[in-house]
Write a protein that binds this DNA or RNA. Structure first.
Length: 426
RNA sequence: GGAGAAAUACCCAAGUGGUGAAGGGGCUCCCCUGCUAAGGGAGUAGGGCGCGAAAGUGUCGCGAGGGUUCAAAUCCCUCUUUCUCCGCCA
């Protein structure tokens, strides 16, 4: 969430940058400032009264000891106590209202984020590799996998419903190999990440901390009955970032770099008909995530490193990709700046998102109360970053398509052969 | 899932309604001692929020949230976590 002080000092700029996301937040910004004014007014009043309360409460036992009558002063204090209680209640209401508004205002896009309405306006930053030229008609991955018997797209329908997949034989093994390859690569000397295996369920406080709640509850699977507070995670970003909720990270530990595999669960509400076939858009998919906690002055540097780490695994697999910078209309709710990595997908005849690397600045840290210390030793909000490193199902799709052969077989990229034990799926 | 116990600072820990939340360890500084050990003294409750240019100052903090009371670490309620035992289980 945004810093009220920052909003106060940069009101017009905030409004202007937020509006470039495609929706005006002028009303919310004005509400925030008004509620904060009201909050301060109540605090000034009630704390003066509490000081009086404290002072008199210390006198009462002395008076009693001296044998004086305290009935009158106690009656007076009772009245004061009631007024304090009322003002405290008012304050709770105002602060809850303020919090409610703060939680639905997205992060302000960083100055470097280009203005634009949607993904068509995302500038390309760089490309790696060349899209394969096939001398035959390439097939989409669902046909390749289906023909090889390693993907069973129709079976999940009766077990769960659409947008789920069974993998079979070397297909299942390929998914597992990719997870291991990603984790091993990120954890190696060059990657420098520590592996985490988190719970795949998180509570609402955690979901709020990273920005999924309160605004995007319709995108998540909630567990159990109405009184249950648990959700299936949409990304390992949620449990791993929230490891440090309400903590002060010692500065010697920074930057904290974690890589985590998890299954991810998304309802994909509003995505009806999009990417209906294949592994591109699933309700449950696997992902290896990179999560980073950085000192504020270091976070932009860490974003470049993190993005390069995500690119490294695609390079290792020989998959052509490009990096784009998300424009103001396409950037996610909590992010201040995002690079997307898009892998070449022959069946789409274009690049398809396979990783999203973002700097959240202190937006998540303020929500989740994640802090480090400044040069003077005072606590300050840390910066959080994360990126897919990368989406596993989409990697399977990309390998099947980019490494397909005319006879219907798929060559296994060099880097995965130690994990696969075979050099092709036939 | 059932029963019991617990939660106070970096650690241990006292504190059953009343003026500044004991004490010890550790840590920091100082004194003494040619070094070390031992000894002596002082400091050490974080953090949030408010006011203030600042120095400061006020307020809230005893697991969390409510309640009772003029006044709560202390009494009451709800919740969380940890420990022990039982049950169940990969």
């Amino acid at each position: 969430m945004l810093d009220v002080k920052m909003i106060r000092e940069n009101t017009e700029k905030c409004k202007k940058r937020l509006a470039l996301r495609g929706k005006s937040y002028d009303i919310e910004i004005d509400q925030i400032l008004a509620l904060d004014d009201k909050r301060k007014e109540i605090i000034a009043k009630v704390e003066g009264m509490k000081a009086q309360q404290n002072k008199v409460s210390k006198q009462i036992p002395q008076m009693k000891k001296a044998g004086e009558d305290t009935a009158a002063i106690m009656a007076e204090m009772k009245k004061l106590s009631e007024d304090v209680k009322q003002l405290d209640a008012d304050r709770t209401v105002v602060e809850a209202e303020l919090q409610d508004v703060l939680l639905i205002v997205p992060n302000v896009p960083a100055d470097e984020v280009p203005a634009g309405a949607d993904d068509a306006a995302n500038p390309e930053i760089r490309r790696w590799g060349e899209p394969v030229q096939f001398d035959f008609e390439p097939k989409p991955h669902w046909d390749i996998g289906g023909d090889l018997g390693v993907l069973l797209p129709d079976v999940a329908g009766k077990v769960t419903g659409s947008r789920f997949h069974f993998y079979r034989g070397l297909g299942a093994r390929l998914e597992r190999a990719i997870i291991s390859y990603f984790l091993d690569t990120h954890s190696d000397e060059q990657g420098g990440y520590t592996e985490i295996l988190p719970p795949f369920i998180a509570n609402s406080a955690s979901m709020t901390g990273t920005g999924q709640l309160p605004k995007f509850s319709e995108q998540m699977y909630q567990l159990g009955r109405e009184d249950n507070d648990l959700y299936l995670i949409p990304t390992a970003e949620v449990p791993v970032t929230n490891m440090y909720r309400d903590e002060i990270i010692s500065n010697e530990a920074l930057p904290v770099r974690y890589t985590a595999y998890s299954a991810c669960f998304r309802r994909e509400a509003g995505a009806a008909g999009r990417d209906a076939r294949g592994l591109i858009r699933q309700h449950q998919f696997n992902k290896v995530e990179l999560v980073n906690f950085a000192a504020p002055e270091d976070s932009w540097n860490q974003l470049e490193k993190l993005t390069n780490e995500a690119e490294r695994v695609l390079q290792g697999l020989g998959l052509p990709y490009r990096v784009v910078c998300l424009c103001t209309g396409d950037i996610g709710f909590s992010a201040a700046f995002t690079y997307d990595i898009e892998v070449w997908m022959p069946s789409y005849n274009r690049y398809v998102e396979i990783s999203s690397c973002s700097n959240f600045l202190d937006y998540q840290a303020r929500r989740a109360n994640i802090r480090c210390r400044d040069a003077a030793g005072k606590p300050q909000y840390a910066h959080t970053l994360n990126g897919s490193g990368v989406a596993v199902g989409r990697t399977v799709a990309a390998i099947l398509e980019n490494y397909q052969n005319v006879d219907g077989s798929v060559t296994i990229p060099e880097a995965l052969r130690p994990y696969m034990g075979v050099d092709a799926i036939k």
